[in-house]
Amino acid sequence: MKKLFFFLGKGGVGKTTLAGSFAAYLANNSHKVFLASIDPAHNLFDFFGMEPGKKGPVKLSEGLTVEEFDIDSYLKKFLKESSRKMKKTYHYLQMINLENMFDVLKHSPGMEEYAMLAALQELLDAWESGVDYMIIDTPPTGLMLKIFFIPNTTLLWIGKLKELRLKILERRSQIAHIKGKDEFEEGVPLDVSDDVIFKELQAQEELSKKLSKMFADTEICKKVLVLNYDELSIKEGLKIINDLSTINVSVDLAVLNKKGMSDAAANNEKLKGLLKKISGLTRIEIPFYREQVTPRNKMKEIAKMFATELL
């Protein structure tokens, strides 16, 4: 069965390393894997020793394709396409300084998450029949949590927008019925069946429902929480678990990475207390390796540990 893996956690805990190792291991075991990073600060190519900056999917081996998703250019592309469509469609609305407006848009808060979600959606849609496993290296916690939450909050919002839109269409058709169809200009939709906007709203809604369902599906979508042996990362991990539980998304595996990096941590009572809180989760502990972990060494050992738990 196809599975999707998310590697979550605070920045610097080793998500990229573990995700990369896991992906390489699976690929070496005759599986077809697609590994993508939606973290704006990618290091996926670094991990594989590739030249950074390559756009689009890169086939590393028979079973492994890697992509550093360029959110920025995705956003730019989206805005450019919108701008082009607008210039084509508008007659007499004076939209002066169009590009300037879009420059502002590009930096407006909130667009990145949607862009990422849209990128994720694109990835999932493009999940070819050949690929068995998709592994996603995620951006730091805050952003990633938002991405998980967007489908749910969007659903409410879209619901209201749909309501409003239906009311508008209803009113228009009532007026057109009495005053004649010419009352409204050409191209103004009077009925749900010709309303592009309603269709778009519905499409967004479907998308959000689909994503929301997928995130919550424990069979298909596995979430791996990577932690380090330090207070901050564990506390953040707990927050991730808590927040996700509110939208029925559960963490499947906790990985305590870089164990032993700090001797002081080993005997920290507070830490032990915190760790107790995640005692219900399946846990893997990975020791701290002095040498840099690359796909060639150590990866098999690490990845094997995952495979048994996650597959």
């Binding site: 469609t89 609305l93 407006s108 808060p109 909130g110 849209a118 409003l164 191209g187 906007i197």
Partner: peptide, 30 residues
Amino acid sequence: AFALILLGALTGMPAPPSYLGIKLLPFLER
């Protein structure tokens, strides 16, 4: 109201235009 919700920024509302707003922009002339 519909336009304001999606694209209030065009009339100076402090809220940034939403992703959905930009996407639907070509169809919202009226």
